[in-house]
Write a protein that binds this DNA or RNA. Sequence first.
DNA 1: TTGAAAGCGCTAACAA
DNA 2: TTGTTAGCGCTTTCAA
Lengths: 345, 345
Amino acid sequence: MDPMNERPPSRRSRRGSGAITLRDVAKLAGVAPITASRALNTPTQVSQTVQQKVLDAVQRTGYVPNRMAGGLASSRSRLIAAIVPSTVMSVFMETIESLNHNLFEAGYQLMLGQSDYSVAHEELLLEAVIGRRPDGIFLTGILPPGRARTRLLASGIPVLETWDLTPTPIDMLIGFSHLDIGRAVASFLMDKGRRRFALIRAEDERAGRRATAFAEAVSQRGCGAALVVNVGDARTLKGGREAMAAVLRQAPETDAVFCSSDLLALGAMTEARAQGIAIPQRIAVMGFGDVPFLADMVPALSTVRINGAEMGRQGARFLIERAEGRSVNPGMVDVGFTIVDRDTT
Amino acid sequence: MDPMNERPPSRRSRRGSGAITLRDVAKLAGVAPITASRALNTPTQVSQTVQQKVLDAVQRTGYVPNRMAGGLASSRSRLIAAIVPSTVMSVFMETIESLNHNLFEAGYQLMLGQSDYSVAHEELLLEAVIGRRPDGIFLTGILPPGRARTRLLASGIPVLETWDLTPTPIDMLIGFSHLDIGRAVASFLMDKGRRRFALIRAEDERAGRRATAFAEAVSQRGCGAALVVNVGDARTLKGGREAMAAVLRQAPETDAVFCSSDLLALGAMTEARAQGIAIPQRIAVMGFGDVPFLADMVPALSTVRINGAEMGRQGARFLIERAEGRSVNPGMVDVGFTIVDRDTT
DNA sequence: TTGAAAGCGCTAACAA
DNA sequence: TTGTTAGCGCTTTCAA
């Protein structure tokens, strides 16, 4: 080893983390650090010989590149942040799983934050996330105007909003229309001859839009006003049971119920069964989300299928394209939805 | 502004990302960068006046600290990585949600990787994760000896294995005994007078251990060998239905079935109901995991409750303690389990 | 309590 | 194709 290659020991030096660095690998391979860097990141820029020597050195030392350092130097973290309201029993997880899978294939890592359904929490989360300088941010939902939105805009980080549509996205957008769903479900049920409707809906802005569109559509076609029962949490069965009990009490002549989640629908069915009410003969039940396992229950739940995985896949693509410096502007991508007609309608 | 404070423009300079940096804040506040850093990170080390001036400057500039740079300089990323087999309909998500929540409160961020139930995938994932230099790694499960384990050990990153117990953990361990569960469920069912058992189990090593312990326990108490039916994926209802059909065909006299997940149990119940078999009168059904909503179904599923949130909470605590340099050695923490006796047994 | 200097481990820019 | 230099934006170390 040429002592000239050694860093002159300075009295006030910090002695690193002790881990193997690119310098060590380069020294072992007999090349400059930048050459070792190229051998690993852009192998085409380097001769076969050097390439092999560097790879050998990596092998022998067990070197694992420090992506924090690389990210700092290149302003590319290869980190994508995603924010969901919740992760347990959440309809968004299919999207996140697909996103994560596709990101990993491309050498990116996912940072996951949960807002716990709180706007305040979401703002803190976004602040923290921006500090990590991710190459992109994946939002499950639309970010309303406010501090967080301003901050995000100012950060210059590519943002993808999903699971909804809006004429005023922050940046990229991929989703579907909740209004269209409400209308489509209304038509679907009316075409089946249903006339007296109830809505079991979660305290959720999007669920609200589906419900409103549904209610408007049925009243436009001359049906009476739909009974609306609110439920706090879309992810419980209990809420659906209680709401169905309320429906049966307040409007016993109801012949179709549209729930804002599959779990609520399952609860509604449970209550109906407990009260000896035939589904779908007397009341049709419709869910939302198409939780996988409900197709295999008896009776199988009719529902609205959202292509969550597709949003994850395309979302990953858009964000990666942006991260690699290509200027993608997908405009508004509508992935649509499907009404799944099973046993309960 | 004193021009002496400006960095001399060099011909080959890279002109940063253009974002506001600590230098900008410091300059505005009229202090050195390091002082601004202290004002933000260790406010007690700084005078009230300086503190206020820096905070003002932050406010006015909209400065968001770059955690990559901070992490590089301090060798503390404030990033924790967690690895799960899957995120959709996964029994681990309660743990991850709790982990994430507790980490965020303490100023840490979660990186989530999914192994897709593949060992090869998990190794790649761990390699990638190590490159990020997280302050800790949270594993849902025990990492068997192999490349990944060696690498992890070599990295020196604190590791927490969960959801299982082993005498040979990599580092920290918090979980429960799958063998104990198998035995406890066996006793529980035998005490209820059940004698002819079947097991519906997923192709999962831990489910296998629960099943084996169960089978041993029942045969030790003089019951006949339990019929074992294997199912590929624990997260489907369909698998449970098909398995139950097999049980009914191959051993119609079966009077109790222990399933390796709640969803499989729900499938088993669905099939039993379809065949007109009374639960629990003729066959008792037991699940595993205590998916929240199953308590509200009719009949409510008896199951084994795992305190997933507790593992997340305590796990966060251990990992953070380690990250802050305190030498925690919790030994083996057993969070136990609870048998939940509801309608199906 | 404050600051100057050095450096974390890597890569962009330039030069050969 | 390879190397030199100068940072990326922050914090540690040492000194005042």
